[in-house]
Design a protein around this nucleic acid. Structure first.
Length: 271
DNA sequence: AATCGCGCCTGACGGC
DNA sequence: TGCCGTCAGGCGCGAT
């Protein structure tokens, strides 16, 4: 399930394979993603050269002269670069074909992903306009989280998962970061001290950074551009480890539902 | 304004 | 064995 580390892993994987390539056509086998993809995508994109492969939050941005192609991997999306003649497999929904005979192939079984051509600079696009700071930005520190959380009654876990607060923290890494910071996931966001938010900001950066180094986390679905899984799942301390011993104190890890989301925590270490 | 909860979608899995 | 219900979850949107 692509969160920020999985998207960044994908970005690093495809960048050297698509940067500088020129699109000659596109194939839309299934247009019903999160938003309908135009069947005339090929005409729209023909002649565009991919100048840069960037990431903002969980979006990939393929920057071209005439605009930006926004990609979101949703829950199950992954990208591969293959020869255009490669037979399509199940859920291979869209190909961007390049002049050199290769293509960028978008596969997404659950179709929660998105592909959107923004014929301008995408920075002020509504999908990106409201996003919070990147987790590695210096502005995203303890005092930032502290300020943003004042007066908020929402639990801290959904608070840090809110992309308007800080981007890229999905369900898995929220559990992991809160464990590292020793904060109970159901604690009211507005009632957590500055000192504890400093620990949380550091924990978010650490856990996301380590996950990127490991090539992301594969629970069930995620694969990188090379079809390989991410290995950070081996380093998860609480996520998916219900009943297992807390790595810090041995207490059984507990599972709960918080805002319709599976949440894992140690009831002794996290307060 | 903040918060809640639904719907989108497929595949894995557990129970009977 | 096979069928069926449940769960997984990012994100937008409508309801409260």
């Amino acid at each position: 399930m692509p969160e920020l580390p999985e998207v960044e892993t994908t970005r690093r994987g495809i960048e050297p394979l698509v940067k500088g390539r020129t699109i000659v056509d596109a194939v839309v086998r299934v247009s019903r993603l999160r938003w309908p993809v135009s069947q005339r995508l090929g005409e729209i994109l023909a002649g565009q050269t991919i100048l840069a492969v960037e990431r903002r939050a969980k979006y990939l941005l393929l920057r071209c002269r005439g605009g930006v192609l926004l990609l979101h991997l949703g829950m199950t999306g992954h990208l591969r670069v293959v020869p255009s003649a490669t037979p399509a497999q199940k859920h291979d929904h869209i190909d961007l074909q390049f002049t050199d005979g290769s293509c960028l192939r978008f596969n997404d079984s659950r179709r929660f992903g998105a592909l959107l051509w923004v014929p301008a600079d995408a920075d002020d696009h509504p999908l990106l306009a409201e996003l919070g700071p990147e987790p590695f930005a210096t502005a995203m520190d303890g005092s930032y989280l502290f300020q943003r959380s004042r007066g908020r009654k929402v639990a801290v876990k959904p608070f840090v998962m809110d992309q308007r607060v800080v981007v890229g923290v999905g369900n898995i890494y929220a559990s992991e970061a809160l464990f590292r910071a020793g904060i109970h996931p159901a604690r009211e966001a507005g009632r957590i001290s500055l000192k504890r938010y400093e620990r949380l900001a550091a924990a978010i950066r650490d856990v996301l950074g380590e996950a990127i180094e490991a090539g992301g986390t594969t629970i069930r679905d995620f694969q990188g551009h090379d079809g390989k899984p991410g290995y950070f799942s081996l380093q998860l301390k609480v996520y998916g480890r219900e009943g297992g011993p807390c790595p810090a104190c041995g207490e059984p890890v507990r599972h709960a539902r918080l805002g319709q989301r599976s949440t894992y925590f140690c009831p002794r270490c996290q307060r």
